[in-house]
Nucleic acid binder design. Structure first.
Lengths: 218, 218
DNA sequence: TTAAATTTTTAGATAAGACTAAAAATATAT
DNA sequence: ATATATTTTTAGTCTTATCTAAAAATTTAA
């Protein structure tokens, strides 16, 4: 169907569209893929010929409905594999990305449907990101930043913004993991740090951390 | 580590060495890979430079110990994934090959070790072929052809020689699957067909079929 | 054992994907 | 508004893996 390289470009454009909410520039793609703008320019022409993106010279690109569907399916596969690795193969949530980057390119609809069933049709990956359905639709859930909770409000940890190994391991160490309930005990005006309760333990959390953790309000 | 193409060549040479038990000719590789002898010639040079094969012009190739280890590991991955597809994702044994061809190239030692554990450290794939261990050693089990059983002898079905969809589906239809016990009731001299009993049902099996089914004697 | 047939290798071309350097278009600042 | 800076595209090169056509080596047969 599509080459490895084409799939990686589509996925990147998909993520950038959601992130920036406007047409995606050649440079921003080059940045994400750690390649050169000239290479991106070449590939965009090819994707455009295949009607996967809309492209006007110097104006950036946008996925067509067709391109969006292909891209969402790759993201779907990536996130289902991440769930598999964590749930069935005892990977920790900071180890899954690299392997899922490879597995997302395996072509077999039956494989993905059966995997989905084996995992109990999960709606979110181990980082709390939503898994697109078979048609490519995203079920965005109303998650908010921990930093935006008010004093005495509570929520369930549903994801992170920064998913680097360092950050995820830091959270593990502090006992902050997916599904845990967090209550804000105090908000410190001076540095915007939070005093929170998690499983009856009290913790102090800096504003930087609180701006990287997603919560679903209770 | 190695490219997709290099891995496929190594795997093919590995299989041909076991099958033919002598140095592998350029043409036989070209045949298996459905490519041209000239392409094989090119790739052999590259594999030889990387010390994966021993190569003397016009004399065919042989895997080095290093090459054999790499190849066995790819076969190991292929067969473990086949077990996974059948045991965990409800694939039938004639559907697994194509997907395993893709999955065998995923690079992650942890993934394979955990998969091995999840499956209970299987020794054979769904076609009865042995799974190489982590060091690349094959535990060849004493399987024999059904056709070589004598009258009144019994055995367990442990594999097939021809693993085409047609043949595997034919076997399923007849109720002949891995692990089933088969007893030879009669051998017909005229056409070498067999009368066999399997799960208290009597069947007549042609010599062609009996030469494609592997049995472990009881 | 020499000629014919087969197998294998070389030479040269092609396509995908990436790169560098330079040109062209667009955006920014004085 | 025009010069400067930035972004994007083009032109040309490189690598990997493939191919066809032709040359070279080996094997087979008369």
């Amino acid at each position: 169907m599509f080459t490895l390289s084409e799939e990686n470009y589509l996925k990147t454009i998909y993520h950038l569209e959601l992130e920036l909410d406007k047409d995606v520039s050649t440079n921003s793609i080059a940045n994400k893929l750690e390649t050169k703008a000239s290479s991106v320019s070449d590939m965009i022409k090819k994707l455009s010929e295949k009607e996967l993106v809309i492209y006007k010279k110097y104006q950036g690109v946008k996925l067509t409905d067709f391109g969006k569907k292909i891209a969402a399916n790759i993201v779907r596969k990536h996130r289902l594999w991440e769930v598999f690795l964590v749930e069935k193969l005892n990977f920790s949530w900071d180890e899954v990305h690299e392997v899922a980057e490879q597995l997302e390119h395996i072509k077999s609809p039956k494989l993905i449907n059966q995997l989905d069933a084996l995992l109990g049709f999960p709606t979110h990956d181990p980082h709390g990101d939503p898994i697109p359905d078979k048609e490519g639709n995203l079920n965005v859930l109303d998650k908010i930043l921990l930093a935006s909770l008010l004093k005495n409000e509570s929520g369930i940890c549903v994801g992170v913004d920064d998913s680097s190994s360092e950050f995820l391991q830091f959270l593990d160490k502090k006992g902050i993991t997916l599904g845990k309930q967090i209550t804000v005990l105090e908000k410190e005006k001076y540095d915007d740090s939070l005093a929170v309760k998690i499983e009856n333990k009290k913790l102090t959390i800096s504003n930087k951390i609180a701006n990287n953790i997603y919560i679903r309000k209770l």
